Simulated assay, not measured.
Amino acid sequence: MISIRKLRLHMGMTQKEFGEIIGVKQQTVCKYERVNTNVSLEVLQKISDAFGVKVEEMIEDNLERYIQSGNRRNISLEIEKYIINRVRKLNGKELKKLIKFLS
């Protein structure tokens, strides 16, 4: 798992600067950096896009946090939204590959 704090510090950014890039306030970045705070897949995708870090590298610990909190229904919804958003972004060729793979 890539720590959001470690990533931010590696980039030499303050919480405010990091938050501006991913579209949240400094206080929210502070919450994300706490161990007990869940980070949505949408935010993980923004971090992935901004810093070139794979969501898969960040998601494992996020899933564990949801499971530990007993919030399994929310993680299912988050995963569903993430998958739907990714499928919507596929071009025709990629969509055909996915359909073939799923068949």
Results as ranks from 00 to 15, higher is better:
V29H: 09
Q45R: 13
V53Y: 00
N62L: 08
D49T: 01
K100S: 13
M11S: 10
K96E: 14
Q68F: 08
I99P: 10
I59Q: 08
A50E: 02
K81E: 04
L95S: 11
K46Q: 01
I83R: 00
N62K: 13
E42I: 05
E20N: 14
Q45T: 09
E17G: 10
T14N: 08
V29D: 09
L7Y: 03
K96G: 01
L98M: 08
E33V: 06
F101Q: 13
I79T: 12
D49M: 04
R65K: 15
K54M: 00
L7V: 00
L41W: 01
L102A: 15
Q27A: 15
I22N: 14
I2D: 03
K96N: 11
L41H: 01
I47A: 03
I99A: 15
V43D: 00
I4K: 14
I21T: 05
F101G: 11
K100R: 13
S103I: 06
E33D: 10
M11D: 02
V39F: 07
R34K: 09
K100W: 13
R65Y: 07
L102K: 08
N36P: 02
T37Q: 12
F18H: 05
R34V: 02
N85Q: 15
S103C: 06
Q68C: 12
K25T: 11
H10E: 15
V87R: 15
H10K: 09
I2S: 00
K16A: 11
I79C: 03
G92M: 05
V53L: 01
K96T: 11
Y32P: 14
G92T: 09
R5E: 13
L98F: 06
G92C: 05
N71I: 08
N91W: 03
D61A: 10
R86K: 15
N71V: 10
C30R: 15
L7W: 04
S3T: 12
I59V: 14
Y32T: 12
V43R: 08
S40P: 12
K81S: 04
R5S: 14
S3Y: 07
E94C: 02
Q45I: 02
N36S: 13
